[in-house]
Amino acid sequence: MESRVVAAVARTGGLTTTADLVRAGIEPRFIARLVRTGRLVAVRRGVYTTDELWTAWDEHRARPMARVRAAELCIAVAHVSSHDSAALAHELPLLRPQESAVHISRLDMRGTRVQNGVEHHGARFAPDEVTVVDGLRVLDIPRTVADLAREHGYLAGLVAADGAMQRGVSRAQLQEAAARMEGWPFSRTVKQVLDNADPGAESVGETLARDLADESGLGPIETQFPVRTPRGVAWVDLRIGRHLVEFDGRVKYRSVEEGGLRDGDLERMLWDERRRQDEICRGGFGMTRLVYADFWGDRRDDARIRLVREQAASTARYGTELSPEMQEFADRVRGRRHRVVG
């Protein structure tokens, strides 16, 4: 890549425009050739990055965020980033971040329209709902959670609300933002989301697992339950009576070099996971393990049936109530954890 192009991209934090490149002395015909040969990647019309940077950016966060920032370079009207774009800036979880559109909210229009690949929302927002993240003016987290629920529905809203509460946003703060939207389209969906949000969900998969269990009619559902094992405390994603549910995300088994969390031999890790499950269940629990594919299409029905069947088997074997020792241990460990976190 020519040094002038690399320098122009570096000066602007990874994105550059046609005008920036021309000012750097690069002819439009040469810019077109770089794009045609794949040396420059058009993030949107007239905004580029290098192929090296684009390849390095992951498709779930960095690339969608680059599209937001690219649009920001081209939008002339007064606005704030909102919805999916605000969620990306705040690093809130999204169901399908790689598919997220660029969203802005404006005070000078009504309704919603798509313009040059950007969704423009005419909506009221107060000055105290606007914040700045890495130089980008965005709506704050409580407002963004409500916008996502209204725009994309219950499940997308639940994922975002769980993520917000996991980061320390209170239910009261979320409810305050929702109250400002009383009577707006789909405001009831927001209320339902906030009624069911749980800060114990530490990932999108854990939220989806809880939603599946809830849809199956199982309950009450407890998140982040501690179990005593020979190797110490094991924190389990969900507890339903004497049945436990664990979500296995692909990132856990992908190597660090591939962007995952596994640092070592895969076979050894799988063996350790099996041993961990045996140690957890030895104390008087059954367990269901779920993966991301279990939450969609025909596999969702199969997973729901399996979960109900396996939970019923655990109930038949162990009952539903925790022993006094189990409950005392859980209360004591939770209290210690909360003191450390707080």
Rank of each mutant, 00 (worst) to 15 (best):
L238E: 07
R339W: 07
V6L: 15
G283L: 00
A201F: 09
A42Y: 13
Q277E: 14
L88K: 14
E258C: 11
G241E: 05
H121P: 04
A62N: 02
V80G: 03
R11C: 13
V340G: 08
D58Q: 04
A66P: 13
A32T: 12
R268K: 10
T18Q: 15
L322N: 06
W184T: 05
T18C: 13
L270C: 03
M181F: 00
H79P: 09
D278A: 00
A209Q: 02
R250D: 05
Y154L: 05
G297Q: 06
R23P: 13
R304D: 06
L290T: 02
R299D: 07
H152R: 08
P220C: 12
T18R: 15
R289C: 03
A172Q: 06
R336L: 10
M181A: 11
M287D: 09
A146M: 05
G153F: 00
A24C: 14
Q192H: 06
E279Q: 09
R262I: 00
M109D: 11
Q166K: 06
G284Q: 06
P127G: 05
L290G: 11
C281N: 04
A10I: 15
A86D: 01
S85V: 00
W57V: 03
E222V: 11
G38I: 00
R334Q: 02
L40M: 14
L73F: 10
R171V: 14
W296S: 11
H120W: 15
E279I: 01
Y154D: 07
F225K: 01
S3L: 15
M269L: 06
I280Y: 04
G284I: 04
G335C: 14
V5S: 15
D272T: 00
R29W: 12
R67V: 01
R23A: 15
I141W: 02
A89K: 07
K252D: 00
D298I: 05
A303L: 08
R44Y: 11
V291D: 10
G264E: 07
V256N: 03
T12C: 12
E222C: 10
V35F: 07
V308D: 12
F247Q: 05
V245F: 03
L261F: 12
V77G: 13
A330L: 07
L139W: 02
M269S: 00
L290D: 09
R304C: 08
T112W: 12
P324A: 03
A303N: 10
I31D: 09
R276P: 13
Q173W: 07
F329L: 05
A123P: 02
L158V: 02
V308G: 10
Q311K: 11
A161R: 01
R63G: 10
V41I: 14
V308K: 10
D147Q: 03
E91P: 06
A177K: 01
